[in-house]
């Protein structure tokens, strides 16, 4: 922060100068062993930042704290595209369904947050670290709670399997991966002494929005989409829902005119519903004994 700046800009007093030397020593020590020391200024892990600025970013080394911050930044762009649906009760309902599924997933401890995005597009999104979104346009296509859970389960699987981190490991994305993505706007501003209007903030925002646009326009690896279907339908069954509602959803999407603009981004970023149905076919036998619930009545009550 302030001391950090003085280190590079000024030595106005002896006191400051000696402090700067002291800091320089600490900093260089931490540079030598930055992985283990975790030298921090405020929320910012300088050790990590320096390393990540120098080396090509290694997505395998992202810890959970960074993963969550990355997801929050991506969510800020998703919600900057379209805001949350205004109705609080519907958002709370989606959170309850989602949290029940997440609690049965392999990463129940993440700070799971679910939101309904106010958009006529038919789609759902996930961001690393536990952020899940469904559009109001998608919600309107559904008939019961199990179908809602099916949509959320697919997105939860993307998060538990770290599919977004997998996507940024690709060569095409790697150059765009910078430290800005893994710190909050606040931490970035604190450490660069920039304000919301400043260039510093704009650099942060540009990096974050650039990555979000890239991730959500291109979509994830197609194999990861199939895996999210496979794990999603099982998570749905495990959580006590009628797992075949998952198939219903894909049938519904398949039945909407394919050139309907509401589906444009979903089709751009996912295999076609028919391909997904075929891929799920061999999963169904294993789930044949499942007698889970649809919860149609509760869904309709909550949507009204």
């Amino acid at each position: 922060m302030k001391y950090f700046n003085r280190l590079t800009y000024s030595n106005t007093t002896n006191h400051t100068a000696s402090y700067a030397i002291f800091l320089a020593v600490v900093l260089s020590c931490s540079l030598l062993a930055c992985k283990s020391t975790g030298f921090k200024i405020g929320n910012l892990d300088v050790g990590k930042l320096v390393e990540q600025g120098v080396n090509v970013f290694n997505a395998n080394n992202i810890d959970e704290e960074q993963e969550i911050q990355f997801g929050e930044n991506m969510s800020a762009v998703l919600l900057g595209t379209r805001p949350l649906y205004e109705n609080k009760d519907i958002n709370l309902y989606v959170n309850k369904v989602g949290m029940w599924l997440a609690a049965n997933s392999s990463r129940p401890h993440l700070p799971w947050q679910f939101g309904v995005i106010n958009s006529t597009a038919i789609n759902a999104f996930a961001a690393p670290g536990g952020f899940v979104f469904i559009t109001s346009g998608m919600l309107m296509q559904l008939e019961n709670e199990s179908q809602l859970a099916a949509v959320l389960a697919h997105e939860i699987a993307h998060i538990t399997q770290k599919h977004h981190l997998n996507a940024i490991k690709d060569d095409a994305n790697r150059s765009a991966v910078t430290e800005s993505l893994f710190i909050s706007a606040q931490a970035y501003q604190d450490n660069t002494e920039s304000s919301n209007e400043d260039k510093g903030y704009r650099i942060w925002a540009k990096k974050v929005t650039g990555m979000a646009q890239d991730l959500y326009s291109k979509g994830l690896d197609r194999d990861d989409e199939f895996q999210a279907d496979q794990y999603g339908i099982r998570l749905l069954a495990k959580s006590g829902y009628d797992a075949f509602a998952y198939i219903d959803n894909l049938q519904i999407i398949a039945s909407i005119a394919a050139d309907d603009s509401a589906l444009a981004l979903l089709y751009k970023t996912h295999p076609t519903p028919s391909q997904r149905l075929e891929a799920l076919a061999n999963q169904l036998d294993k789930l044949a004994m499942n007698d889970g619930l649809l919860l149609t009545k509760r869904f309709k009550q909550e949507m009204n």
């Binding site: 930044n73 800020a76 762009v77 998703l78 919600l79 900057g80 595209t81 379209r82 805001p83 995005i117 106010n118 958009s119 006529t120 597009a121 789609n123 559009t135 706007a185 925002a205 974050v208 929005t209 979000a212 646009q213 959500y216 326009s217 603009s261 509401a262 444009a264 981004l265 751009k268």
Partner: peptide, 16 residues
Amino acid sequence: GVRGFDVDDLKKAKAN
């Protein structure tokens, strides 16, 4: 699309 969520909409987005 109206109130859409498309590549173009994403391009225009600012972090909120």
